[in-house]
Design a protein around this nucleic acid. Structure first.
Lengths: 114, 114
DNA sequence: AACGATTGTTTCGGAACCGTTTCATATTTT
DNA sequence: AAAATATGAAACGGTTCCGAAACAATCGTT
């Protein structure tokens, strides 16, 4: 367990990571999209639209549209739940794993430069 | 200086902070806006549109519009530079300070829960 | 089989953002 | 003083996002 970050270090870290994301040309994910993506990858499946909407305190269309956008970027996929065909199961992709790996490396590296 | 964050801890921290931001009803700043705001508050003045655009690798209108949006939220103000009236000096506000204080407290608190 | 409940998607009008180009103002150079 | 340069803002068209409501498909219950 690391030492907790001081408030000044927290802001510096947030700034440095954000700057790196803005400077490169890749499209930035919104805070909502990023949080959805991280939920999918950090927490145990299955992931459904409804559960994500409840967790984030947002409406279901917000989740649907975020999945549309991230699907286009190859970060997530959807598949029908065969046991209950109303549900959509949200699945991880190689692209999403790589994306978050790079984010994690970036944050970790910046945290060392504090 | 804290221990550096592991990659797993970095993702967990990003998720937790993003989740807190999404859950409350306040409007989320985009990554660009947040980075601009942090630049203004972390680095020494004077801050100009041109300098910020160069630093972030974005066009000047991007900065202008972000300042418009954050100005409406009371997070920054603009003032003409009296010595060179082409310049606009971007200034901090009480609202912006409070906003970043709360962000810093949030990040710092979440980093302790890792 | 029929009705109501549940799940996810689509639609609608409105707002925000983007990139590029154009503009207005101010300064510097000739 | 005139022309060239620099700065920030505004205009333009296109894309994306939002909240709310309506919708289609599926399930559960009776």
């Amino acid at each position: 367990m690391p030492h907790p970050l001081s408030t000044a270090q927290a802001l510096r870290l947030w700034h440095d990571v954000g700057l790196s994301q803005v400077q490169d040309d890749e499209p930035d994910l919104s805070v909502r999209q990023m949080t959805i993506l991280l939920s999918i990858y950090l927490e145990a499946p299955p992931h459904t639209v409804r559960a994500l909407a409840a967790k984030l305190h947002v409406s279901k269309p917000v989740i649907t549209r975020a999945l549309d956008a991230m699907g286009k970027l190859g970060l997530v996929t959807r598949r029908r739940d065969e046991t209950d065909k109303r549900n959509v199961l949200i699945q991880r992709t190689v692209g999403g794993s790589l994306y978050l790996e790079r984010l994690a490396d970036l944050v970790s590296a910046k945290s060392q430069e504090l």
